[in-house]
Design a protein around this nucleic acid. Structure first.
Length: 525
RNA sequence: GGCCCCAUCGUCUAGCGGUCUAGGACUCCGGCCUUUCACGCCGGCAACACGGGUUCGAGUCCCGUUGGGGUCACCA
């Protein structure tokens, strides 16, 4: 039975790099009919674990990364919170101590630090001196008489080679002598990450440890713990990490300021902020930015696009296939097609995937996606009536692929604002209505055409305009831009006939009247 | 600095010794379409880090150099 796990610590948000790791673990388990386990790394015992965990669980659920065992669902190997498994770790420490694979160390932090600095000053490798190692009760008593406290350290081998057959990296060798006597238990009895990790992986029968490359150097000490405890080793697969946009440096939530200097990144954030602002969403920088998965959910990305993009960040099927549904990923995923080099996160390409996936969303579903944005922006009532929904669907259809994220619907807010409150883009008004000599005249005449047009739908409007153009002996371009500015306030927008039909006759006439009034009141020029 | 990992267009990647004058995608730049924008269509720019080997033949294997990155906690 294949069992993989993702072990996030409750930090309050789900990071792009982290979720990519989770995705690969999940994909691997699903591909092989195994189980995917979620285990919470809360060994540092924060106060509000549940609160800090919620966004992480929410993010995974949104992406469809479901777990077979873990928080909320339980499972036969629980509890799934490391803070509740301390007895297991303590037992492991005792066993290690008993069998001579670990020892009590009475050195103070300062003494260790001094040794480390001395080694550095002499340019030689630091190796734990074991000067304060106590292996007998007598030694312990002596150190304790000095008022010293002890931690437990691993008694690492001082010779030999460790060979790891990594499923992604292949054969990797380490010299045991380079390893330190790592601390596994603090003076207060609490245990450290690596010990807990190894113990839990074994207890939960994890078959494949799939994690980011940064853990590769930690593997020897974990192997030592596992072997000393008589465990069978899991298979290891170290994923390349997700790098900053346009760089090979690991993506980090701490370096937002730096990323904002990246044009694409800044643009995406700005786009997101505009949507957030319109719907009254608070945007604390540490939670609302393109390194955090929730950012994408909030502004209306589809989870399918996200998953598709993330999967291709380090994995590929072949030289041409790149659009996958989650089921396709599960069908084809394999660790031997995972790349070894880090992949940098490219917001522009993510957007391209989003664009492609959004086209696949049926109109009815898209309407459901988009409605909450209009409601939160106060543009349509909640709940929306059937007539509003129909109108939104009509708008969506006219907008086509211009609405790339659900939040993009807010680009068309003007369809929902009162005619009297429509604002006009000054430059567009000047260029399309004021400046052309006959624009006002034509607009006035076309207004009466609209007043008569029946039914008020795109084909009829199309016909009416063309007849008008012919009768006036002008070109379409001479009137259509003026109409656009008059009824939408902007120089760019959807197809003109769709636009007018969605607005309806009443709004079109009212808006044209407003425009004529606005322009008429200006000094000629 | 020690150890470890990595190295194909700007980015994601295909390539598992010959079919590579290196393929696809995103971006970018032209052009077409056109009522604006977006889309679409056509075309274009753009890469095997370097040096040695091995081989009849190397992007593909080996070694070295260079470059980049990760890691060296009583954090996870």
């Amino acid at each position: 039975m294949i069992r993989t796990r993702f072990a996030p610590s409750p930090t309050g948000y789900l990071h792009i790099g982290g979720v990519r790791t989770a995705l690969f673990c999940w994909l691997f388990a699903r591909r092989h009919g195994g189980r995917f386990i979620l285990r919470i790394d809360d060994t540092d015992q924060q106060r509000n674990v549940q609160e800090s965990l919620a966004p992480i669980l929410e993010g995974l659920k949104w992406l469809g990364i479901d777990w077979d065992e873990g928080p909320e669902v339980g499972g036969p190997f629980g509890p799934y919170y490391q803070s509740q498994r301390t007895a297991l770790y303590e037992k492991a420490v005792e066993a290690l101590l008993r069998d001579g694979f670990a020892y009590r160390d009475y050195a103070t932090a300062e003494e260790v630090q001094a040794e480390r600095e001395a080694a550095q000053a002499e340019k030689r490798d630091f190796v734990t001196s074991r000067r304060w190692m106590a292996e007998t009760p007598e030694q312990q008593a002596r150190f304790e008489a000095e008022g010293r406290q002890s931690v437990v350290r691993l008694k690492m081998p001082r010779e030999g080679t460790l060979v790891i057959d990594d499923l992604i990296r292949g054969r990797v060798e380490f010299q045991w002598a380079r390893e330190q006597d790592h601390v596994i238990q603090r003076a207060d009895g609490s245990c450290l990450y690596h010990l807990a990790n190894v113990v839990d992986d074994r207890a939960m029968e994890i078959s494949h440890v799939i994690r980011a490359e940064e853990h590769l150097s930690n593997t020897p000490r974990q192997v030592f713990i596992a072997q000393s405890l008589g465990y069978e080793l899991p298979a290891y697969a170290h994923l390349p990490f997700v790098a900053e946009p346009g760089s090979k440096v690991k993506l980090s939530k701490r370096k937002l300021d730096k990323y904002l200097k990246n044009r694409d990144f800044a643009k995406l954030l700005e786009h997101g902020q505009q949507i957030a602002q319109a719907i009254g969403l608070a945007t604390p920088p540490e939670e609302f930015n393109p390194v955090v998965v929730d950012f994408y959910r909030q502004i209306g990305f589809t989870s399918e696009a996200m998953v598709n993009y993330l999967a291709l960040l380090g994995w590929s099927l072949d030289d041409r296939t790149e659009h996958f549904r989650p089921s396709g990923l599960i069908e084809h995923f394999s660790l031997d097609r995972v790349n070894r080099a880090p992949a940098s996160f490219d917001p522009v390409k993510l957007l391209a995937f989003q664009d492609a996936h959004m086209r696949e969303v049926p109109l009815a579903d898209k309407t459901v996606m988009v409605l909450p944005y209009l409601q939160k922006a106060g543009l349509v009532p909640a709940p929306a009536g059937a007539d509003v929904e129909a109108r939104v669907a009509q708008l969506l259809e006219a907008a086509g692929d211009r609405v790339k994220l659900a939040g993009d619907i807010l680009d068309y807010a003007d369809f929902f604002t009162a005619d009297a409150e429509l604002t006009y883009d000054e430059k567009a008004l000047e260029k399309r209505v004021c400046k052309p000599v006959d624009a006002v005249e034509l607009l006035t005449r076309f207004r009466s055409v609209l007043a008569q047009c029946e039914p008020f739908d795109p084909p009829t409007l199309d016909r009416a305009l063309h007849e008008f153009v012919e009768a006036e002996a002008i070109k379409v371009g001479q009137i259509i831009h003026a109409i656009r500015v008059a009824v939408t306030g902007k120089g760019v927008g959807l197809g003109m006939f769709d636009t007018m039909a969605i607005l309806g006759r009443e709004s079109c006439l009212a808006r044209i009247d407003r425009t004529l009034e606005l322009v008429g009141n200006r000094p000629a020029g």
